[in-house]
Amino acid sequence: MNENGQAIEGANGHAAVKLTRKDFQTDQEVRWCPGCGDYSILAQVQKVMPELGIPKEKIVFISGIGCSSRFPYYMNTYGFHTIHGRAPAFATGVKVANPDLQVWVITGDGDALSIGGNHFIHALRRNVDLKIILFNNRIYGLTKGQYSPTSELGKKNKSAPMGTIDYPINPLSMAFAAEATFVARSLDVDPKHLSTIVDRLAKHKGSGFLEVYQNCNIFNDGAFKLYSDREVKEDRMIPLEHGKPLVFGKNKDRGIRLNGVTPEVVTIGENGVTLDDILVHNEHAPEPNLSYILGRMQYPEFPVPMGVFRAVERPTYEEMLAGQISAAIQTKGAGDLEKLLNSGETWFIN
């Protein structure tokens, strides 16, 4: 409904409504540290929401624990701030109970990949229609500065004064391995890119995963600066666009070529390399192999890919469950309690 309480019938079974960014803001004071990357993500999500045309009562934000997980308190939709790492499980219950809801999961690198690694994997593999945004700042912020599962090897911090000896995990590799049907990456300092990808995520049907590089200016300031800074980003990051060759650089003269199954950076026009040699991105490839290769590319050996790595369709968990329920009703008839209570061998005592 809009501010005048009028609902307009729209596509996707939802009433098309005219809402503004303001409709999605709550009266709760936002309590992230000044300068935190979370503000940017909140702003972009609040910007995209009204454009989706979905009434806000049909939207649910579910989070775990951590700085990012305060997110639902700031969204004027339904929200559930649950327990550490388990948001995908709660979200699965909500979506299965009412598939008509649009369900978002807000999580962090510790929440999704450490304590909640198991739920993250299984929500993705079931293809529950959840929109998962992982705020990756490569550090534990709320508990004040311990290393996270995405912290770089050797990083010195509060719980590893001599540097971490944990090899980091790659969130995208995990998502591909877990059979996610939508996998993307964006970053807090590029609001335009971020809002485009959030919009894509919102419109994907199935388990969607978006990793957002998010700066923690208190405990891990500048974690992504080496490639996200305005002056260098064109040379150190590469945009993913479906059907287009993977080229990057200020002059768009560099690209990614596959040598066997190994990617390499090449310069177009040098050593006989032409645009035809450059790998063309295909987010709809049935197998995630190529996307996986792209997801492994890291700075400084490679430019860091940004955008949608994978977007494929297949039946969702909640659709298949609803299908089984309809099939059961069709073959057995709608549940008849008298019949159920009286099932099996029965006898009378007179």
């Binding site: 649950t82 327990i83 995908p88 499980a89 299984h122 059961a328 309690l337």
Partner: peptide
Amino acid sequence: NFGVKTFQAEDEISAIGAAIGATFA
């Protein structure tokens, strides 16, 4: 056919999490 939704979760925690989510909904 009674509309019962059974969810065999990945672990005990997910099982209760999903049940609470369903209750919320």
